[in-house]
Design a protein around this nucleic acid. Structure first.
Lengths: 340, 340
DNA sequence: ATGAAAGCGCTAACAA
DNA sequence: TTGTTAGCGCTTTCAT
């Protein structure tokens, strides 16, 4: 037997009060006498009444829904991030409506329309680059938006990232201090600000020491492409091989390590040092034991949610760009000192 | 400058038609003349009008929102599943509202209330066991619900799982055919039907050959606990060690392999064969090269969505339990024949 | 095919 | 503090 949904009207009748009294009892910060409150609560629980969020959203203009736009999330650190995001928002009375956007530009546009149709109170764009055109549309629609793990120059939009530039630089200094002399880089997808900033910091760090970048490959943040880039980088004469490789994220770093060990019989870090970026859980697994720059996911999430909710709740907050610094986590995949 | 939202009324005025005409133009399967349709579309696009999903949901009773309940999703194959689920639903005009439920019973209850408040058209419970009490509440509330990757005996609720029993059995037969004689099992969280079914199939498979289970540990689907269980299983005399271990999922199997190799110096599969379950992407990585039972995620998702939408769209569909069989993927972590 | 009118379930003035 | 009243933006009869 499927029960129809109970309305506030029905509760009101049973409690012998007006419908608005019921509404007030269920509206935080509204005024109702103890007597009324009690009568209403009793009737409501007898009937199994719960307020209808959608109706509430429509009249109040606040849906308590946050639209989350994500690109396809196959790799890396998203599951964790998504979980924390959702959990953090849930604690603060919001829920996440998920929208998947293929990287093709048109798709992101359509998706944005769908999002706005749902009257979301805010948008989090995770690992998706919004064109400045889209940023504008969000502003025009009056929907606060925060970019997570992507940033944009000249943007009037808030963004939270790890300090990718500083992280990349840190890696360069570390590898140089370890006595490496032929230092290479394997890049992620070049359209991503994370990739660009990590590489920029890294190259500037090498430059600090007057060292050129020894070799460069592109893995597009994908496992198989990283393997291919590795093979190519290590295809020539042994003298032409790097003695250290900084890989733009952990996921690709695993591919690099596997390829180097399984196909070339190299030992890490004796023959070559590897450093990654993200510190995903698998980086700590004994098979990889990867030295890597940690993304402080927890703090990034918290900042994202704080900024978004403050933009939602206090109007007229100015957009802000937050970069969260993370430590280089030393493990066994990179040697620390000159001697082999 | 934030533009206020355009209403159908405003479009109607500009197009010189009634508000209901506008509604019809945007309602699939409603009747409007070509002339009207054209005028309305023109006015709408000039104004940037889009129907308000929430208002539509309220009056029509269909929100086109699916509530997805997930437990914390740290491990294994959820990112992929979540993505496919969301993508599949999005293609069919629905969106996913995410609800995180800690495994504690009370929490799942609260979460269910929140879900129902949003007038979702359906619920997918992914890897969460709903008590029969909760199943009842969903039925009473008239909200179709499908369990994904969990099943329940005596349940009036639809469920989609892989054929865990058959999978476990397949592993037993495979290990026996490979000439293993001391076959052990490392269990996941015992509250999960996936764990129970995999183990039941496995043990029945051993029994088919008259072989007892040689040893058993519990890893609760967690990396560190699996490591601990491994150390304990391999702590005594060398004669007391298994020559094959079936691990209830891949995530734990990686922990087992790492522990065996790094701490005990064993070689896989020469000293011991390892078989996992799920076939997550990392199972194919060279460092693990794990023989494992594949979960056909894609098909499971498709079945889940099909069942859910058919329950939503055609009333009076009977609940059904679907088990999707997956192959044993042979890789290098388990030897195939008797000789070492 | 179209317009007028009646709500969907709720919140938020406004009076009392 | 409470009840009355007016909508939120839309779909859906019901006439025309």
């Amino acid at each position: 037997m499927t029960h129809a949904r109970i309305t506030s009207q029905e509760v009101a009748e049973r409690a012998g009060v007006s419908q608005s009294a019921v509404s007030r009892v269920f509206t935080p910060g509204a005024s109702a006498s103890a007597r009324t409150t009690e009568k209403v609560r009793k009737a409501a629980s007898e009937l199994g009444y719960r307020p209808n969020s959608l109706a509430r959203a429509m009249v109040s203009g606040k849906s308590r829904i946050i639209g989350l736009v994500v690109a396809y999330l196959q790799n890396q650190f998203y599951p964790e991030a998504l979980e924390k995001l959702s959990s953090e928002l849930q604690e603060r009375g919001y829920h996440v409506l998920v929208f998947l956007a293929a990287s093709t530009a048109g798709n992101v546009d359509d998706v944005l329309d769908e999002i706005l149709d749902y009257q979301v109170d805010g948008i989090i764009a995770a690992s998706v680059a919004l064109s400045s055109d889209l940023s504008n549309r969000c502003r025009i629609a009056g929907v606060p938006t925060v970019m997570f793990n992507r940033s944009q120059d000249y943007s009037a939009m808030s963004a939270v990232t790890s300090d990718n530039y500083a992280g990349g630089r840190k890696v360069a200094h570390f590898l140089i201090a370890g006595g490496h002399e032929r230092i290479a880089f394997i890049a992620g997808w070049e359209g991503a600000s994370t990739q660009r900033d990590r590489e920029a910091g890294f190259c500037d760090g090498l430059r600090d020491a007057g060292l050129p970048l020894f070799a460069r490959g592109v893995g597009n943040f994908e496992f198989d492409q990283a393997r291919r880039a590795t093979r190519q980088m290590f295809s020539g004469d042994r003298d032409s091989w790097p003695d250290a490789v900084f890989v733009a994220n952990d996921h690709m770093a695993f591919a690099v390590m596997d390829t180097l060990r399984a196909e070339l019989g190299l030992t890490i870090p004796d023959d070559v040092s590897i450093v990654g970026y993200d510190d995903v859980p698998a980086a700590a697994w004994p098979s990889y034991d990867l030295t890597t720059v940690r993304q402080r996911t927890e703090q990034m999430i918290k900042a994202t949610v704080d900024i978004l909710l403050s933009e939602i709740e206090n109007q007229g907050v100015v957009p802000c760009q937050v970069k969260i610094d993370g430590p280089l986590v030393l493990r066994g995949s990179a040697r620390l000192t000159k001697g082999r």
